[in-house]
């Protein structure tokens, strides 16, 4: 039971970071119909920016805020300079451009910070809570809670504020939004800025948990199964699916793999099921597409025209 609880805590902490990334992807998709492959790049760049700010002596809170501001600007610039000129280009071409952005960002970070893993400066207090056999470090708790609070905070902002209303309006019906005086292009720009800022924060939180390296960009790939499972157009779905995926990965590694391997070692010559964890998100994606293509919280027939 202790093991299950510990795995649940670990899964929720990492899942909340997945959720932050996925929310950003859904936000852009809702507003512009583009699946942004560069989301992982924003997370990686955000972590490196936070690292640079922390190394410059900034307080962790200011460094995280600074990172979100820088990434927000970067997201907005991406939309203005790269995406907006491609307004009439096929969506596939736009998505390929976002893939190109991921490669360029990775190369830029490689040149600036080198290929080696970097120890991320301490953001949260050191130490751990140990109760009833469960052992959880402070940084895990802090990163998980912060990611969850920000995810819910963002959803609340999207639901209850004026800018959220404008965002939803522009996402739901562009022509209607234009008719009532909403500057749709600006809303798309804001969506890119918010999405990149969230990814930057997620990247920073991930770096506090797992250290900093170029491989952090790979987190973006996890976001895609998350958004498909949650429902392409559902921000809340992205949150739930992110947590679900974190839990599934954790239980796969901590429970399913050992049970399977023990069985296989006992009865066959197979000794390892490999890194089964990496299969789980995509297996879930295929299953969801077969059983409920619109995702857990998506609407049937979700389509941008």
């Amino acid at each position: 039971m202790t093991l299950v609880l510990q795995l649940a805590v670990a899964g929720l902490a990492i899942g909340s970071v997945y959720a932050l990334i996925a929310i950003g992807v859904v936000l852009i998709y809702k507003c512009s119909g583009v699946v942004n492959f560069a989301q992982g790049a924003y997370a990686m760049v955000g972590a490196y920016v936070s690292y640079a700010l922390l190394r410059a002596g900034l307080h962790p809170v200011l460094a995280i805020i600074g990172c979100m501001v820088v990434l927000g600007g970067l997201g907005s610039l991406t939309e203005r300079l790269v995406l907006r000129p491609m307004l009439k280009a096929p969506l596939v071409a736009v998505m390929m451009v976002t893939l190109g952005l991921l490669i360029v960002a990775r190369a830029a970070c490689l040149i600036i910070w080198g290929p080696d893993q970097i120890a991320f400066p301490k953001v949260f207090p050191e130490g751990a809570i140990s109760a009833a056999g469960i052992f959880v470090t402070y940084n895990y708790i802090a990163a998980g809670i912060l990611a969850l609070v920000l995810s819910f905070g963002f959803l609340a902002m999207y639901q209850f504020t004026r800018i959220g209303l404008q965002q939803r309006c522009a996402a739901d019906n562009t022509r209607a939004a234009l008719a009532i005086g909403i500057h749709v292009s600006n809303q798309v720009s804001i969506a890119w800025a918010m999405s990149a800022a969230l990814a930057g924060l997620a990247g920073t939180l991930l770096a506090t948990l797992n250290g900093l390296s170029l491989d952090l960009a790979g987190i973006g790939m996890i976001a895609f199964p998350v958004i498909v499972v949650g429902g392409l157009s559902s921000l809340f779905g992205a949150l739930v699916a992110g947590l679900l995926l974190g839990l599934l990965q954790s239980f796969t590694d901590g429970l399913l793999s050992p049970v399977l391997e023990d069985f296989l070692r006992e009865h066959t010559s197979i000794y390892s099921v490999g890194a089964l964890q990496q299969v789980v998100p995509y297996a879930l994606l295929v299953l969801m597409l077969l059983v409920r293509p619109q995702g857990l919280f998506g609407r049937r027939g979700t389509e941008r025209v």
Partner: peptide, 14 residues
């Protein structure tokens, strides 16, 4: 585990 693994917490619990 994956050679480029970033998080092995669950494996460590195992």
């Amino acid at each position: 585990f994956r050679y480029d693994a970033q998080d092995l917490t669950a494996q460590m619990l195992r």
